[in-house]
Structure formats: C-alpha cells, structure tokens
Simulated assay, not measured.
Amino acid sequence: MPLPSPVNAVALLWIHRRFVWSLTLTGVSSRYRTSWFGLFWPVIHPVLLIGVFTFVFAYVMPLRWVSEESGGVGFPLFLYSGFLVFTFFADVVSRAPTLVLENTNLVKKVVFPLEVLAMVSACTSLLFFAVNLGVFSVFLALLGPGLPWFTPVLLGLFIPFALFLIGVAWFLSALTVYVRDVTHVIGIFVTAMMFFSPVFYPLSSAPEPVRAALSLSPLTIVIEGIRAVAFDHVLPDGGDMLILWIGSLAVFYLGYLWFQRVKEGFSDVL
C-alpha cells in the first residue's frame, strides 16, 4: 500500500476548510452556551489570570531570580506569555485521546472524514489562544513596552505550532482507540510538560545541559519567540524557527500517516 503524499495532508485542511470552520464555531459557542457570561469568558479568563499572577508572584511570593526589570507588573505578563502558549498546547493534547471515542457514531459513516476531528479541536483551541493573545497584547501596550512593528512575524511561530498540535492530535486520537490507557497517562504528560517548558521561568535560568534539551521543544521555541518579540523587541531566532517548521511539518505528516493507516480498524474495535 503506497504511503499518502505529504501534499494530501496539507490539502486536507483546504478541502475541508468550510466544514472545519463551521464545526469550530459550533465548538466555541457550545463551551459557554449555558454560562451567564457566555462568550465573554474567553476574555474574562485571561484578565483574571493576569490579576492572579500579579498578586501572587509580584507581592505574595516574589521569585528571587526575577530581576528588578521583570518585577512588578512586568513579570506577571512575562509569566502569562508562557502560560497562554502552554494552555493552547494542553487544551489540544488533553482532548485528543477522546476525539474518536466520543464520536463513535461517526466512525461507521463512510462519508464523514474523521481526520477533521483533530483539525476542529486544534482550530477551536487556536481561536481561544488568539483571544488570550489579544488580551495579552492589550496589557502589554498599557503596562509593558508595547508591541513592535514586526509583531505579525509571530505567525511564523503560530502556524507551524498549530500544525504540530494537529499531528499530535491525530496520533493520540487514533492510538487511544486501541490503547485506552492513553486517556489516563495524558494528564500526567501534560502536567510534566508545564514544568519541562519555560512557562514559569526563563530558559536562561535552566542549567546548560537541560537548556539544550528544552530548546528543541516546540513549546519552548514558541514561548521564547513570543517573549523575544514582546519584551525584547527582537525577531525570534531564525535557527529555532527553522527547527520548529521542520519538526512541526514532520509531526503533522507522521500523525496523518498514522491516522490513515489505523483508522480502517476503528469500526472493529468500537
């Protein structure tokens, strides 16, 4: 059986773009449908988090390694810049194992493209990430150094990171159909990644051997890239962006390849 072309994996996003967009909007609205504040929650949530970070890490429990320049309001924003990327990652990865399991009624429908489930999950989380990034940008403009003119270059980080997460979601959603233990392990993995990534600390504070390993993580590259643009007003490292693009496209294609190879057995297991 010939391997699916990498072009097919990318073309899948374009072919089903309207279907994915429709399901994404449905997913966004359904999350807050029964709440009082509804779609205001994606804005309220990051504002509250920034307030909590400010109170705890600037006044209650200031960290010793934080320099004077990063103190006060600046450090909570520094912390939140890592947290918003991790939240995007955690939301997609945590939901991935149950994407197929929760839609067993669609498995036996030949006309339904099961591949879009991972794309919808990633796109839904991407919209919430965009809202969080917007709130972060407003606080950065009001309380921080502002945004440089080359801020749109961050798309060069967000696009491959989203493709990376779609590939991971394809792999995990297909694997969990056959190995249900993944649903129990994934929570531990996501929590571990929060500490193995520079969410609560700058990458420069990690020991040299550990720093070299952490710097290869897509999470680290995106977090450090956002911080470079937002706080230092410099472009993300070109080498890191190249690693991110190559690694993300590889994971995207391998996840697609895995999903295509094993999805034919879904109906037998489910």
Rank of each mutant, 00 (worst) to 15 (best):
residue 264 E to N: 08
residue 253 Y to S: 05
residue 257 L to N: 00
residue 252 F to L: 15
residue 247 G to V: 10
residue 243 I to D: 05
residue 256 Y to G: 01
residue 259 F to L: 02
residue 243 I to K: 11
residue 257 L to H: 09
residue 256 Y to D: 00
residue 243 I to M: 05
residue 258 W to G: 06
residue 240 D to Y: 00
residue 267 S to I: 04
residue 262 V to W: 15
residue 241 M to C: 05
residue 246 I to E: 06
residue 246 I to G: 02
residue 255 G to T: 01
residue 268 D to A: 13
residue 263 K to E: 02
residue 255 G to W: 00
residue 262 V to I: 07
residue 262 V to F: 14
residue 239 G to W: 01
residue 261 R to Y: 10
residue 252 F to S: 02
residue 253 Y to H: 00
residue 266 F to K: 02
residue 260 Q to N: 11
residue 255 G to S: 10
residue 244 L to K: 05
residue 257 L to C: 08
residue 249 L to Y: 03
residue 260 Q to D: 08
residue 250 A to P: 08
residue 263 K to R: 12
residue 246 I to A: 15
residue 249 L to K: 04
residue 242 L to M: 14
residue 249 L to G: 12
residue 260 Q to K: 14
residue 266 F to I: 02
residue 267 S to N: 08
residue 256 Y to L: 06
residue 263 K to F: 14
residue 260 Q to L: 15
residue 255 G to H: 02
residue 248 S to A: 14
residue 267 S to M: 12
residue 261 R to K: 09
residue 264 E to D: 11
residue 258 W to F: 15
residue 244 L to Q: 11
residue 255 G to A: 09
residue 258 W to Y: 15
residue 269 V to E: 10
residue 247 G to R: 03
residue 257 L to G: 00
residue 242 L to S: 01
residue 269 V to I: 11
residue 261 R to G: 09
residue 265 G to R: 01
residue 269 V to M: 05
residue 240 D to T: 12
residue 269 V to D: 12
residue 254 L to R: 00
residue 258 W to C: 06
residue 270 L to I: 13
residue 254 L to N: 09
residue 268 D to Y: 11
residue 245 W to Q: 03
residue 257 L to V: 01
residue 244 L to N: 08
residue 250 A to H: 03
residue 267 S to Y: 13
residue 248 S to L: 11
residue 263 K to L: 09
residue 270 L to F: 11
residue 261 R to S: 07
residue 263 K to V: 07
residue 250 A to M: 12
residue 261 R to E: 06
residue 264 E to A: 14
residue 246 I to N: 07
residue 268 D to Q: 10
residue 264 E to M: 13
residue 252 F to E: 13
residue 255 G to C: 07
residue 262 V to G: 06
residue 262 V to M: 06
residue 248 S to C: 07
residue 256 Y to F: 15
residue 251 V to H: 00
residue 258 W to T: 12
residue 242 L to C: 00
residue 246 I to C: 09
residue 268 D to I: 09
residue 260 Q to H: 04
residue 242 L to R: 05
residue 263 K to I: 14
residue 251 V to C: 10
residue 246 I to V: 15
residue 259 F to Q: 00
residue 246 I to Y: 01
residue 250 A to Y: 03
residue 260 Q to E: 10
residue 251 V to T: 13
residue 242 L to E: 02
residue 239 G to S: 06
residue 266 F to N: 11
residue 265 G to Y: 09
residue 262 V to Q: 10
residue 248 S to Q: 03
residue 253 Y to L: 07
residue 265 G to T: 01
residue 266 F to Y: 08
residue 240 D to G: 10
residue 259 F to W: 01
residue 246 I to P: 05
residue 248 S to I: 15
residue 243 I to E: 03
residue 252 F to K: 11
residue 245 W to R: 12
residue 247 G to D: 12
residue 254 L to W: 02
residue 250 A to C: 14
residue 267 S to P: 15
residue 241 M to G: 06
residue 252 F to C: 15
residue 266 F to Q: 05
residue 249 L to Q: 02
residue 251 V to E: 07
residue 253 Y to D: 04
residue 247 G to M: 07
residue 265 G to P: 07
residue 270 L to E: 08
residue 255 G to Y: 13
residue 267 S to E: 14
residue 247 G to W: 03
residue 240 D to V: 11
residue 249 L to P: 04
residue 267 S to V: 14
residue 253 Y to E: 09
residue 248 S to P: 12
